[in-house]
Structures are given as structure tokens and as C-alpha cells.
Amino acid sequence: MPSWALKLGSLCITLLVVAGSYDYAKLHLKNAAAPLQPPVDGGSGPLTPPAGVSPTPLPPLVGVRGNRTRPPSTPAPFLNLQPGVQATALPAVTLTHVS
């Protein structure tokens, strides 16, 4: 066999391996059984904030006009419930804070 045929054959084999390897790697992006599993981060925890950064305090869940007391609500009308279901004696939530 001439040398050009051997060279062409080796080139074809190599290109075949390149194409096959790329296709295989594309279909198998992750391999949990791979012997090496490098760390994704630089070692910090997933919820650890960067140094020098403090979490922003949340605003108080209170109305701007002050803490209002809930006005007494009128008792809700009695409901016809299924057997085994009891109505509660707690006052019904009929009013909400006005923003």
C-alpha cells in the first residue's frame, strides 16, 4: 500500500474518532461516574454571602400609620356544615388592614 493511502487512512480514522467522540460527549454531557469531579465553586458554600456584604434588612411588616388594632368583628352567621365538621368559635376574619 502506498504511503499516501496509509496517511489518508490514518487521517480518516482520526477524523472518525473526532466526530464520534464529539457526538458521544454531546449526548453525555455529565457523567456521575467520572473518576474526577472538580469542585464547581471556589470552595464557599452555596448560601454564603461574599465577604463584606451584609443582608439587606427587610422592612417592618407594619402599616405606615402605625400599628392598628383590629376592630372587633361581628360574629359570622352560622353555616350548615357536613356532619363531623364543627364551626369554630373564633371570630371571622372579615376586615383587613387598609394600606
Binding site: 500500500m1 504511503s3 496509509l6 482520526t14
Partner: peptide, 18 residues
């Protein structure tokens, strides 16, 4: 059976560029 030494030597040198 595949080739003589001269073409094999050429192949061996060529694979460097692969």
C-alpha cells in the same frame, strides 16, 4: 502484509501532525 517499511515510516512521521 500492509506496506513496506518506507511507507510505514512516512505514516509514522505523518501521525505527528495528527
Amino acid at each position: 502484509w500492509l506496506a513496506k517499511n518506507r511507507p510505514l515510516r512516512a505514516l509514522h512521521d505523518w501521525t505527528t501532525w495528527l
